[in-house]
Write a protein that binds this DNA or RNA. Structure first.
Lengths: 228, 228
DNA sequence: ATTAGTTTGAGAACTTTTTCACATTTCTAA
DNA sequence: TTAGAAATGTGAAAAAGTTCTCAAACTAAT
């Protein structure tokens, strides 16, 4: 095992492995080889081994991995043995949907507050979660020990919200606004851009044959040197 | 310009470029160089040129790109000159939020139908959009000329829904269920896994220093050869 | 025309990520 | 014990993706 930086591709896969292991634990499977894991969940066994090896030697040659033990390791590595307190900024359709998103509840993420700038919404509740004034974000985020912020506001407001969030000292941010945000230093920003994802699907419909980036490629475009 | 396959990384960036160009068009900018585009939107100029070059020669040396012309090219390349008709499967919180998602409306995507298995929901409307029985998906998707399906059901039902969708001949699918789905052949499946994204953020909080995958890396894990 | 300045398109170099391949370790059974 | 089978961990190779560099193409000014 060598000390190097871990890519996001790896951490994403770690999350997937954890999900698979949880399934195996639920089924009562005691040990699993990288090959069985790979076959069962459509993964690549060499990649599983390489990913895991970044973090330690969890397997036993000739045997494989002890499912429960590995599950516990991954849980710890991903920081999922601790509870995370999430604030969602933007109490629109998406923000309120995310508040109730069972994926957030299932794991160690609790949505503890919603924020919005709309006077009408402030003070209302979505389920158990109250909507606060975005102006109070800094104070409340400290009081409620929020460590993850979700930006679910229209693109035009995202930059300002990001600044407020950084100001408050939040280090992990998930952004749904379809706009390029940038952060510096010891902060992690993850953007989920639904528009881009959709348009990428649209490309596929327009240029069929690019199945999963593995097919051959048809090309449009023409030679042209002067303004027409 | 050479004929090769286009990676999804490229098509995602094409969508971003298009967004930038639309902004420039709105401002009345006539021409732009890859360098100006890069500086302004925090991109890499060489990458912009390389990405565009996959599709044709759109620039003029010494000048740059004609903004409106390039915008039109990208729109066509991404298939956004045609209207796309979207069905959302799963009329829960996420599905209904997506139905109203303004990002879907802004561009060339129209949500024309919702589907669910819940008797209570079938027949109701979300805004203008009616909720239909998932059993009728195949028939209705043909009648309504649906070309994009969004899977927004719990993980446990996602596989079955996927099969229904493929059965109906849909070629472009966006999946929000946190479960590994696989498709074969001439079909594009794009999974947006919120759980994985969150857990990847959690990793960052647990192992600070991995800023944007560029920092140094702290490692946990221990040598261990025998079952403890 | 010629020159100086700009900017593309594309090959080369570099970096990152994935996959391969196998020595090594462990288990099982005779 | 030893032999054979299984499966890890890892270095090396391959593939994919990004960045560098610069000849060639164009504009504008003289």
């Amino acid at each position: 095992m060598k000390v190097e930086k871990i890519s996001e591709l790896t951490t994403n896969r770690m999350s997937v492995y954890l999900r698979c292991l949880n399934e195996l634990v639920a089924e009562g499977t005691k040990t699993v080889s990288s090959d069985k894991l790979a076959k069962r969940f459509h993964l690549n066994s060499a990649q599983i081994r390489k990913d895991l090896a970044y973090f330690g030697e969890f397997g036993v040659r000739g045997v494989g991995y002890y499912v429960e033990e590995l599950r516990d390791h991954l849980t710890k590595i991903l920081g999922l043995n601790k509870q995370h307190r999430v604030a969602i900024i933007g109490a629109g359709r998406l923000g309120t949907a995310l508040t109730d998103y069972y994926g957030f509840k299932q794991t160690n993420f609790t949505v503890v507050a919603l924020f919005d700038a709309d006077r009408e919404k402030i003070g209302q509740k979505v389920g158990e979660v109250e909507i606060f004034d975005i102006k109070d974000f800094s104070d409340l985020s400290k009081r409620d020990r929020i460590d993850v912020a979700v930006i679910a506001v229209p693109a035009a407001f995202a930059q300002k919200v990001l600044e407020d969030v950084l100001e408050a000292g939040i280090k992990a941010i998930m952004n749904f606004a379809p706009t390029p945000l940038r952060v510096e230093g010891d902060v992690k920003l993850k953007t989920i851009d639904l528009t881009t994802s959709l348009e990428s699907l649209s490309y596929f419909l327009a240029q069929p044959g690019n199945t999963n980036g593995k097919g051959p490629k048809p090309v449009s475009g023409k030679k042209r040197n002067k303004r027409q």
